[in-house]
Structure formats: structure tokens, C-alpha cells
Amino acid sequence: MSDRILGAVAVAVGAGMAWAAQGYAAEISYEPVGPRAFPLLLSAFMVAAGAWLVVRPGAAAASHAPADANADAAGVPGVTGAPANRWQHLKPLALALAAIAVYVTLFQWLGFPLATALMALPVGIAFGGTWRQSLAAGVGMGVVMYLMFDKLLDVILPTGLLAFIFGGR
């Protein structure tokens, strides 16, 4: 799938998310931000990233040119005649989807900071990070995002096993 097609799909899905989120309203005001803010923010990022993929210069030429003149149909540099492995690029995606499924399952019990840190580890490794980089990014993301949502936006997130650190909810 070309970058431009992916970008157009992201713009369409993000616009659909924003349209669907317009009707989100809480019956009682239990949080100052409300249930509409997060989907709208997420859809804005999705639309912006998708638009960038559509309009960025040189995206089409760079994504289709093989890196090496001796590359075969699979795009493996320096290897000619090797069988094309069409499904190799789906391994990181499958690992990321499995990590997200585990994240959703254990989110309440582990809590947001720990579940986010543990989910970032296999996702980061799947997309080329070392385990140390992925773990550091996951811990940082879990803690910073928890504090941002809990302290700045006053959105209640579960603390799970780390309730003694973050003040249990």
C-alpha cells in the first residue's frame, strides 16, 4: 500500500472519528474534560499525520525505488533470485496487535503506567528498537501520560499494582 493511500485512509478515518465523537457527552459532569476530548484529540493527530503522508514531497518515489540495483522483487539488497517473502512485513504488525490485545486485557489489573510500559516493550522491539530503548520509552510514556491525564486533565486512570506510588484509584 502506498504512503499516499494510507494517508488518505487515515484522513478519512480520523474525520469519521471526529464526526462520531461530536455526540459524546456525559450525563453528569464527572471530569472537567469530558468524554469527547480524547477521541477529538486522537482524530486531530490522525488527520494531521495522514495529511502529511498525502502531501509530503517525494513520498511516492522514495517508497517504490529499491535501495540496491541488485535487489530482487522482495526488495532484499544484494540478493537476486531469493524467494519473495510477502508476509515478512506483517510480523511487526501482528506482534503489535498481540501486545495491544494483552494491554486491553490487563489494563485494569496492572494499571495504566505499568500496562503502558509493558505494551511498549514488544511494540518497540517489533519496529526495530532495542529492548532497553523500548523499555525506557515505555516507562517514560506510561509515567508521563499518567501524570498528564491524572494531574493536568483530571482524567481518572487506573493505577493497578502501582497504587502505592501513584495514589490508588
Rank of each mutant, 00 (worst) to 15 (best):
S2D: 14
I5K: 08
I5G: 09
L6Y: 06
G14K: 02
G14I: 01
A18G: 15
A18L: 07
G23Y: 13
Y30G: 15
P32C: 11
V33G: 02
G34W: 02
P35D: 06
P39S: 06
L40P: 06
L40G: 09
L41I: 15
L42T: 13
S43T: 07
S43E: 03
F45N: 04
M46D: 04
V47W: 00
L53W: 03
R56M: 01
G58W: 01
G58Y: 04
A60G: 12
A62I: 00
H64R: 15
D68K: 02
A73I: 13
A73L: 13
V76I: 14
V79P: 04
V79N: 09
G81N: 08
A82N: 05
N85Q: 13
N85I: 11
R86D: 10
P92E: 03
A98S: 11
A101P: 10
T105A: 13
Q108V: 14
Q108K: 11
W109R: 15
A115T: 04
A115H: 02
A120H: 00
G124N: 12
G124A: 12
S134P: 15
A137H: 03
V139K: 06
G142A: 08
V143Y: 07
V143S: 12
V144S: 04
M145Y: 05
F149L: 14
L152G: 12
L152Q: 11
L153K: 01
P158N: 01
G160C: 07
L162Y: 04
A163Y: 11
G167S: 12
R169L: 13
